[in-house]
Computed example of a mutant assay.
Amino acid sequence: MSTLLTFPGQGAQRPGMLHALPDHPSVHETLTQTSEALGRDVLSMDDAASLTSTVSVQLCLLAAGVATARALLAEGGRPDAVAGLSIGAFAAAVIAGVIAYDDAARLVALRGRLMEEAYPQGYGMTAILGLERGPLEAILALVHGEASPVYLANLNAPTQLVIAGTHDAMARVSALALAAGAHAAKPVAIAVPSHCPLLDDAATKLARAFDGIALHRPRLRVFSASAARELRDPVRIAADLAHNMAMPVRWHETLLLARACEMRLAVEMPPGNVLTRLGKLVLPEAVACADMRMDSVLVLMHRESRGAA
């Protein structure tokens, strides 16, 4: 009986997300550390205008995840494992002790810039709801081409999938998916085509930036949402962090792995609850810090710790 901390990716952001974090010393210290590492005030990056930037979104998600997890740890929370979706993997690696937070903040800033520079406009991501992988892949094969790239990017649940590519190509896939029985096709608040080969070059550049970064063996179990497996080697974790922007997200498989590894409680870091809704499909219990008081979350975590003892 164990606790898994989950860290969300882009699409979870919302204006004021950093200002809504718990009033806790660990939160204040993390936000200050973020600003010092970046040379700018991170609290100026969570307004609606700033969150149109991929760089700002990713840095705010990193800060929110690390700050909240640190607060839980400071109050005696004892997680057993971590998993992060896309940018959330960086926060997960920090909390697992694999990489220093200052290094993670600078790498995430670079990650966001590389993604923005690669595709400044005309690309994005769309959620396809109510259609399974096989039929969607058949539609993608009809639409995808050199002039109309579009890929399967996220496998969040059996019938909650996300595609990435050009706006025109995604619109064509969405229309065909709806005609094939999908319940909905919803644009995701992500301005770049993540988790597909379109970002291979950016991922290679980010991987080079890991040279010289100190890495450590994880103190917690690390479940990779790209590999859908547990990673123990810090070099392998770093490679996963660098390349996950260009690799499909296998979140549902990752949750199945967590359940097989006896994770019972999933606690989602702010600002949203999407991962919590997905977690409830697989794990015995899943909660979002954004929806609960910290003391209530800690009660659940302590209960799991006692059950595992």
Rank of each mutant, 00 (worst) to 15 (best):
M247C: 10
N244Q: 15
R250Q: 13
V274A: 09
V287A: 07
E230C: 09
E253Y: 01
A290K: 05
R250C: 04
A258K: 04
M247F: 04
P234Q: 07
T276F: 03
V249A: 10
P271D: 11
A260F: 05
M269T: 15
W251E: 03
P271Q: 07
R303H: 15
L300E: 11
K280N: 04
R236N: 11
A246G: 09
L300W: 10
M245G: 05
P248A: 12
D240H: 06
M292D: 06
A228V: 08
M292Q: 13
L278W: 06
T276S: 06
A246L: 05
A286T: 12
D233S: 11
L283M: 12
R236Q: 14
V282I: 02
S296T: 14
R229G: 07
M294A: 04
M292G: 00
M269K: 07
M294E: 00
V282Q: 04
P248V: 01
M263F: 04
L231K: 11
I237P: 03
P234H: 09
R259H: 09
C261A: 15
A225M: 06
R229L: 08
S296W: 14
P284C: 07
L241W: 07
A288K: 07
A246K: 09
L231F: 11
R229S: 12
D240Q: 10
I237S: 00
V267L: 01
A239L: 11
C289P: 00
A246I: 03
I237Y: 00
P284W: 10
M294W: 07
P270K: 06
M269D: 04
M301I: 06
L275F: 09
A246D: 01
T254N: 13
R250H: 11
V299N: 10
V249C: 13
L256I: 08
P271M: 12
P270D: 07
N244H: 15
C289K: 01
K280C: 03
N244V: 12
M292P: 05
P248G: 05
L256E: 14
E230W: 09
